[in-house]
Each structure stands twice: as structure tokens, then as C-alpha cells.
Design a protein around this nucleic acid. Structure first.
Lengths: 349, 349
DNA sequence: CGGTCATCCCTAATCGTTTAGGAAGCCCCT
DNA sequence: AGGGGCTTCCTAAACGATTAGGGATGACCG
């Protein structure tokens, strides 16, 4: 099709005004059902498809919700996306993922550029899986783009911004308690960088537990990807001794750790026990089946999308009533989901 | 910000025309560098961010490439997405995924609605991971939206449409040969529905191999998800006998099969061998490590995105020169990637 | 018969950009 | 002095939809 039919074409063909055609196709009042039918016919015949870009411009609507992430290799986010997509579908909005880690490494420049991009494309809202800079949050707020954090905290100064988080401190304490229950007294905590705000509480929790249960604890940190986790743990084991239990603080850490343990043929859990965070599909099929501290990530996605949707609808209402469309954050939008320990075999059970 | 600054505001503040401001910010010729600087200053001060919706409308540009998929639970596509994203990034286009299987089941209605939606939003191009209906392909072509198929064939009547596929027939023959090499003579092929066009060749290949190597072959089919695979195989084993080797035709099938084998405590590979298709991160860490027939899915994503990008750029050129922007498909865009058998332990090696 | 109201449709402005088509000023050359 | 060619900027018309504000018609009512 060399020239695509527009509303004007439908108008010309039917001899009706664009006003009438627009309202006819939009199922709006003010058009007799005869006319409406005529218009529909003509539109179908021409193969007319409305241009949503023009609609968005004119109606000042926004269509896409951005999910900001920084580690595509983390399966945790895939389930979350599932929940987000499912919740967003009936609203007619679309989720697009914006990765702010090019080739695996986060940079502040990329964060800023991404935020800029979201504003340019007039995103409807943002779901952030890691803590953004205060600047970013304020800039988005300035452009009336609501943000919901998941599995991470808003910057400290933006306390009102919604967030769905797990009680990571309690979670880690539970992990520690379980290890202590097995009689292990020598722990290694394999952590990702503290740019992901969950890191702090997870570490605090395991430290707390180690004191309470009088265990030895060492904490080592790697970048947030499998390769780094593998390298970091390998290097550590080359120098230090083998701990009785390894706690891998998230999915990539677990993966890296397993590779090391496999490679060195350590018996899990007899020589060294392993507990991870965040369940994933294959965990029960590993050998031994992996014990993990889980949170229902799909449900988290659903909740985040629900909150965001509500805020967006609020904004639309506000605007319709002539009020400024500033995002209306409510205290109840700060939510906690319960962690749960999924006990399998790798912990020694 | 109650009212967002527009180009007009920058124009008013600087006392320059919108023409000048637009060209200044766009780094286009016809503006003195002094003026350009003035404009930049003013824009920054106002916090002006161009509205890309308006730009798209005016310039008739398209920004997003849709990846049509029908099974989110298949890890195969995640690596592919990685490749696509990486390739698309420098072009300024964005990949958005459009799942045409609501709650896991494909429906023709959803396919049609999705295609309609892509046309409405004037997508720049489509990467389809499963065979679309001829209607869909023609409709997209009519709207000058190029399509590239990956891991699936175009409808038979649209032979010119690019596709990146594996030689699935040869691949299956190789799998069969390997099994025969182990002396196994009793095979079970666990397949997904033939809506995914790879199914046919994979089945043909394994059938061919079974004849050539004089093996018994049974083929059973489940829906394309883990639950169905699990249920189907379970039901089959309840009635029939245990085969010497199971070939699971894709990722979800492997997953379902492994669950069954675990649950029933069959020894792999001693009692029953298992070979899957499409490698994934955890495969080497399973017990036993999984032997798979792999194709480099990230590379496939890269190639698909490259082809699509070239076609899109061609279209833009054509349009600039006043020619119709019909997608220019080339025979060389039908590509094959080589399969490779990644031998681990689950086959008996 | 005049007034009121609802129904159906229209004209024209608008959303925020880009861009064809000039116009003004200046320099340089013959 | 006249003309050609730059450079720099402007006016105004697009792009493809929605929508405020009216106008014409006919029905209904007192």
C-alpha cells in the first residue's frame, strides 16, 4: 500500500465529516446507527486502521509502562514480567523492558539516558527493579510519570514512592537459623553489589544470625552476574578454606556457586551446604534439589502493576477534572511480601 | 509540572522561531552556533524534553520492533531477546514483546488482534517466533511492516519472507544417530504441537533416523508448556512401557520430562537416556548434565535483528527517494544456522 | 404557532513537532 | 552597480487524529 488510508479518506469516501467518522468508529454518541454502519463498511473496505501515534498526541494518552532492570540474566525477573504483562493486558497498556546495564555493567550515564528516553516517549509509568538515583525519580515525577519500585527501595529522600519489597532482614535471619539448626557454624555469604538495595538487608540479616547463633561468617562480593560470581568464589576458595555452608544471595550468585562446586566436585550438602535466594523453575531438578529463600516474584509483578495502574487511572481522572495529574502515592502502596523458605535437599535436609 | 514546556515555549522564551529552535536542538544546519547555544541554554533551563510522539507523527518514523512469541515459559527465547536487544540498541529502536498466547494457549483471535495492534501503533518491524497466518503476513506487508521469522517458517505462500531457521531435519537425524550409537533401539519422541513449524522437521528427522537405525519410535504430543509435557508423559508411561531413550523436542518438553523422571526415580541415563533440544543455562548443572541439540539462539536473535534493520533502513531510503517503502526481501535473507549436539551425560556418554 | 429539546452532523481549532518555500542581509566578483 | 551565492532565520502548512462549539431538522408540548 503506497499511501495508507486515513480518517480523511474514510470521510471523503462516505461524504461525511471527520467528526462523524471519528465518533462512529470510536463508538461514541452522536451518530445514528445507520451512519455508523455506513462508516464501518467504508472503513473496512478501505482497509483503514487508525493511527495510534496521532491519537496519543491528540488525546495526550500514554501507552507503555517501562520496566527498568539491570540484569537480564536473572531469571527472577522473568516471572515478574509474566505477572506484569498479565496485569497490564486488560488495561491496554504495554510493558517494555529498559535494561540500564549495557553488556552487563550498570552505568549512571545509561540510567540517565534511559530516563530521558522514557520521558521523551511519554511513558505511562515505570516499574523499577533497582534503586534509581534521586535525580531520576524527581525528573520522572516532574513529568508526572509514576514510579513503583519492586524488590528494591526508592532513594531515601523519596520516601513516598511505592515499593514492593520483601523483609530481607528477616529472610536472612531465617536462612541463618536454618543453617544453625543443621549445626553448621562456618558460613560464607556470596553477595552482589549494594547498588541493589536488597543487598544491605540480606547481609545485615545473615550477620545478625551469625552472631545470634555464634557462627563464623565471611562475606564476599561479586558483580551481579554468573561469570563474576563464579570467578569470585573460585578465587576465594583458592585462598581460604571451604566453609560448611554457602549462602548465595540471589539467582546469579547461586548459579556461579553451583558451577564452582560442580567443577571441584564438592559433595553438596555433605561437604558443603548451599542455600540460595529466589526460587526458579529448575531448582527442584538440580542435584541436590536446591533449598531457597523465595518470594513470589510473579505476584510481586502483579501487585506492582496493579498499584501503577491505579495511580495512572487516578492521574487520568485528575486531569479530566482539571486538577494537575501529579501521581498520588499512598502510604498503603509501600508493601511487604512474606519470604518463605523452600526446603529441599541442598541445605542438608 | 502542571504544564510541560513545548517547543513553542522555547521559541517564545528565546524570541526565535520554532523553525530555528527545532533545527538548533536537532543539530541540523542553518543555525549559527551562537544561536544554537542560546537555544540549548533556554531549553535546558525550561526543562524542555521533545515529545517523541509528535515527532513520530510528523516525521512518519517508527520506533518499535515487535517480537511475537507464544510461550513465555520457554527460556530459548530469552537468549534470543538478548541478541535482539543488543543489535537494536544502536539503531535507536526498541524491542517489545507481544505474546499471542493468553494464559498459555494460542488463539487465532489473539493473533489477529495483536497484528491489528501492531499496525495501529505503526510498528517498524516484526520478528515472529512462530508461523503466522498468511492473512497476518499479508496484512503486515500491506502496511509496509517487514517481518522476519526465526526458528519457524513463513506460511508456505509467502516464500520470500526472510527466516532464520535451523536444519531441524538434519538435527533430529543427528540426535537419532547418537542414540543409535549408544545401542538404544527404543525411542520416545515428546513433541509440542505442529503450530510451531519446527515440529514437523524435527519429527521427520527422528522418524528417518529410527528407520535407518532400525529403532522403535513412538511419538507423543503435548501442549507447548511444562505442565502439559509433564502430564502427557506421565499418562503415557502409565500405560506403555519405559523407552530406552526419550527425546524431548524443546525446552518445556525437557522440563516436563525431567520432572516425571525425577518423580519416578528413574536412573538417567542408565535406565532411560534423555536428549533435549535447545541449550539453557542450567543444563550443565543438572544431574546428570543434560545432552542437548543446540542452536545458538542469541546469535539467531542478532541475525534476525540485523536483517530486519537492513530492510527498515532500505525502506527509509526508498521513501526518501520517493519510491514506495515496500519491504525489500532478498533471497539471502533466508538463512540456516547449524545445529550442534552438545554432549553431556544424560545421553549415556 | 412559538418555544424547548434531543438528535445528528459539521466547521475549524488543536495536540507538538518538522519542513517546504521564501526573505533578508552580507560578501564577493565582474 | 548588478547579480550570484551563502548563511541565517521566518511564515505557515503539514502529519492524523479528537473535540469545543454550533447549526439544522424534526418532534413534542402547551
Amino acid at each position: 500500500m503506497s499511501k495508507k488510508p486515513t480518517l480523511r479518506d474514510v470521510s471523503r469516501v462516505t461524504g461525511l465529516s471527520m467528526w462523524t467518522v471519528s465518533r462512529a468508529l470510536g463508538d461514541l454518541s452522536g451518530v445514528s446507527s445507520d451512519t455508523r454502519e455506513t462508516v464501518r463498511q467504508a472503513a473496512a473496505e478501505l482497509g483503514y486502521v487508525p493511527n495510534r501515534v496521532a491519537q496519543e498526541l491528540r488525546k495526550n494518552t500514554r501507552r507503555s509502562v517501562a520496566v527498568i532492570t539491570a540484569s537480564t540474566s536473572n531469571y527472577y525477573y522473568i516471572n515478574m514480567m509474566k505477572g506484569i504483562q498479565r496485569t497490564l493486558r486488560p488495561t491496554g497498556r504495554t510493558a517494555v523492558v529498559a535494561d540500564i546495564a549495557a553488556e552487563g555493567v550498570y552505568t549512571r550515564e545509561l540510567e540517565d539516558a534511559t530516563v530521558q528516553d522514557l520521558i521523551q516517549s511519554r511513558a505511562a509509568g515505570v516499574i523499577a527493579t533497582l534503586t534509581l538515583s534521586l535525580d531520576s525519580v524527581e525528573l520522572l515525577e516532574k513529568w508526572d510519570i509514576p514510579v513503583v519500585f519492586v524488590d528494591s527501595d526508592p532513594p531515601a529522600e523519596a520516601a513516598m514512592v511505592p515499593a514492593i519489597t520483601m523483609d530481607n532482614f528477616a529472610a536472612s535471619v531465617e536462612v541463618g537459623a536454618h543453617l544453625a539448626g543443621h549445626g553448621y557454624r562456618d558460613w560464607l555469604f556470596l553477595a552482589y553489589p549494594s547498588r541493589w538495595s536488597t543487598r544491605a538487608d540480606r547481609e545485615r540479616g545473615i550477620r545478625h544470625a551469625s552472631e545470634r547463633f555464634q557462627a563464623n561468617l565471611e562475606v564476599i562480593e561479586s558483580e551481579n552476574d554468573v561469570e563474576s560470581a563464579y570467578a569470585t568464589l573460585s578465587a576465594h576458595l583458592d585462598h581460604g578454606s571451604l566453609p560448611r555452608a554457602i549462602v548465595a544471595a540471589n539467582n546469579p550468585m547461586v548459579h556461579g556457586a553451583l558451577r564452582v562446586l560442580h567443577e571441584r566436585s564438592f559433595a553438596v550438602p555433605d561437604q558443603v551446604a548451599l542455600i540460595g535466594y529466589d526460587d526458579f523453575d529448575w531448582a527442584p531438578l538440580l542435584n541436590p534439589a536446591l533449598t531457597v529463600l523465595d518470594q513470589d516474584s510473579e505476584d510481586i509483578g502483579v501487585q506492582a502493576a496493579q498499584i501503577l495502574t491505579r495511580i495512572i487511572e487516578d492521574q487520568i481522572q485528575s486531569e479530566r477534572n482539571g486538577r494537575p495529574p501529579r501521581p498520588a502515592y499512598q502510604p498503603a502502596d509501600r508493601r511487604r511480601v512474606e519470604p518463605r523458605l523452600i526446603v529441599r535437599r541442598s541445605c542438608g535436609c
